[in-house]
Design a protein around this nucleic acid. Structure first.
Lengths: 111, 111
DNA sequence: AAAACATTACGACGCCGATCGAACATCAGG
DNA sequence: CCTGATGTTCGATCGGCGTCGTAATGTTTT
């Protein structure tokens, strides 16, 4: 299925973003992405988050994040690169990513 | 039980805020508060949002918003004043309220 | 072409949360 | 003290979302 399509910047709504970030797992995923940069679904970075869920579940969460406009997925060979849409998000919702805080903070946010 | 207690500023986490704002009704309530200032539970301002839910449901949502640290409730006679914690939120999560957008926008957010 | 690997799509199940109705609490006014 | 008005709490219901297992899709390699 070639490239999975994410919504254009203008189509990203704060409503969808909030719903996407409301789940603790998805929030952790975004924090990990913002923290350690892009990775693939089976990477060590992902495991370092402490998340232990089935692969289909992970795929589901990534789909939600993708459709909300938070992440982008690019096919690279037999793997898929997952990347946070830093610039788009910063352009549309300035300060949002920073207020999520790092992964280590575990939810403390702005301190 | 007199005054309902809301968490202090330091105790407000972005996690709880995100969960609270993920619900469309609660998001509308916050937008209305940010838009038109404080009001009481039975005020016209509240009705102008187009929300039509039972009183117990409204009470429930306000409780969630209160415990998440988004709003404050003060007893005034037979009524209860609901107010958005502008300063606390702005201090802890700068730019958050603005990125929610006005009530009229209906969710467009930053534009 | 076929096998192996990485990820997604599809159903199905379980649980949390949104909702409502009714009972209770609190306060103002007579 | 009794009554009416305003919110809250409680209990029950119900729909949606997160979860998992398995089948399907696509890609690289042999």
């Amino acid at each position: 299925m070639s490239e999975v399509q994410e919504p254009p910047v203008e189509a990203v709504t704060i409503d969808a973003v909030l719903v996407a970030l409301a789940d603790p797992i998805r929030l952790t995923l975004v924090r990990a992405l913002n923290d350690a940069g892009d990775w693939t679904c089976g990477s060590d970075v992902l495991r370092s988050t402490g998340i232990t869920i089935g692969r289909s579940t992970l795929s589901h969460h990534l789909k939600v994040l993708r459709e909300a406009g938070l992440v982008r997925t690019r096919v690279q060979g037999t793997r898929r690169m997952v990347m946070l849409r830093h610039d788009d998000l910063e352009h549309r919702f300035p300060g949002l990513l920073r207020m999520l805080g790092p992964l280590a903070a575990g939810g403390a946010g702005a301190e």
